[in-house]
Design a protein around this nucleic acid. Sequence first.
DNA 1: CAGGTTTTGAAATTTCTGATACAGCTTTTC
DNA 2: GAAAAGCTGTATCAGAAATTTCAAAACCTG
Lengths: 295, 295
Amino acid sequence: MNQSGMRGKSRLHPTDPPSLAERIRLEMESFTPSEKRAAHLLLSHYPFAGLDTVAEFASRAGISAPSVLRFVTRLGFGGFPDFQKHLREELEAQLLSPLAKSGPSDKGQGAPALASFAEAVIGNLKATVENIAPAEFEAVVALLSDPRRHIHFTGGRFTGALARYAESHFRIVRSHVDFIEGQPALWRDRMIEISRKDVIVAFDIRRYQEDVTALCEAASKQGATVVLLTDPWLSPIARVARHVLPAHIVAPSNWDSSAGLLLLTEALVAAVTKRLWETAKPRMEAVERLRGERS
Amino acid sequence: MNQSGMRGKSRLHPTDPPSLAERIRLEMESFTPSEKRAAHLLLSHYPFAGLDTVAEFASRAGISAPSVLRFVTRLGFGGFPDFQKHLREELEAQLLSPLAKSGPSDKGQGAPALASFAEAVIGNLKATVENIAPAEFEAVVALLSDPRRHIHFTGGRFTGALARYAESHFRIVRSHVDFIEGQPALWRDRMIEISRKDVIVAFDIRRYQEDVTALCEAASKQGATVVLLTDPWLSPIARVARHVLPAHIVAPSNWDSSAGLLLLTEALVAAVTKRLWETAKPRMEAVERLRGERS
DNA sequence: CAGGTTTTGAAATTTCTGATACAGCTTTTC
DNA sequence: GAAAAGCTGTATCAGAAATTTCAAAACCTG
């Protein structure tokens, strides 16, 4: 009857994913008539039917509330809330399983892998563009085009490279541009120079990095304006950020894709370069000249 | 910014499918501090965090129950159950459609700069994928998946950031991975360690940088295998490269776009991670663990 | 077809959740 | 720097939800 051992939430072994639906299907035979009605309702709208109230569920299944309770008890749950919690967790685990799979199932052929990956990335880019508030983008462009402001770029473990990419471009387009390492030890003393005139452009996506957040919070406290490029779930930096540009990052990979962030970065570079063209042009030419001389 | 008219549940215009998450993101600015905490919790575990009880939600967000209630009221819901019902319906609708992406929100207007730039970038990605020989891609994946080889990433002024991006991922997936600065002074002495077992992955596009070329030529002379990610006009490094992956880079900007290179990089990371999964997984988990301990 | 067993639902009960009033605190404004 | 406005948490309450009780109904079984 009751296998009292599986109470609570703590069943997240990756080796233990027999969906509840599957179990119900197997045990279907042994159910009483009204239990079968409950089971069928649940399976036909799995798992959402189970997320309603007992009364609602009972009514939709055409049975009484106690029958529903007996049904979930029979499945081994301590009660209806316990049952719902299980459904939610199962749904969540299934919906956003970043790793947990990728077994040696299908051997990847090169071209399809690349093509499908590209397709996903392109989807991300489209979604990213559609979800950016034009005013927000424009505001950031204006901010970064203000020659009186100092611009600092920073980022996390992976996104730091994007910050560097941005910095290496903006450094040529305009002055007062630099890159700040994420580690607190490396910026603690530079923080005294950060003031109301400064702009921090932070890159931070999933597995948000605490040191980057700390940097932005410190800078914000000093009155600096924070611009954040992040994922749709928003880094905690968003709390102190004046402008937020979210990019979609989910790709068929064990890693997130930063292509959307790069797109935004390059679009910002292009827009700011255009806006500051009068001053940017001679700077770019100067850089070009210096390159030539060096070699 | 009053949305006084949208009380209650009846906002289901078919032309109006902006996920609640989207709306929260837009209104984030106008939230009070504790509302922001609620918003962040919800977005970071969207939408599951909202399916719990008020008390649970409040506790997880670090705020009080009434603040949570005020939050959902502010979003225009009649109460917490109403709010949950909306989340469930949204989730169900989203889950039932295979991939509810590319929302036909509003196209055309918006930031024309951003949109047209994105269009160009997307075009680049498609062209890039089409012009990559599958065998070439596969060969590179195989090369980078060979645990006996040492992998060195390098790049130029701008593309160096991409090389770093690649390095920071591969470093986790496998061992014997590093980054080499482009300046000759910085690699001259390291060159003695480069041998037949080594792989150099170089990023180099237009305005090809001589020091990177020099590095690759030196490495090649020592017997190392050179992989090149470049533009369609091929960096001079191509002469010594064993494998070449060209990406389209032209964008409506004064600068070239590196999105194609990033796409290839991420696709390589994904493919190699998959191929080395047995050894990569424990490495990724170890990194994850270390991150957790640090904080 | 009676006796016993199982299944079921109405109603009573209990538990817990969502909602509200109010007071303390913080921030803003003049 | 004081007053006002806004935010937030504690305490409390009302009500709904889950659960239990219990007797009627259905179903076997011999």
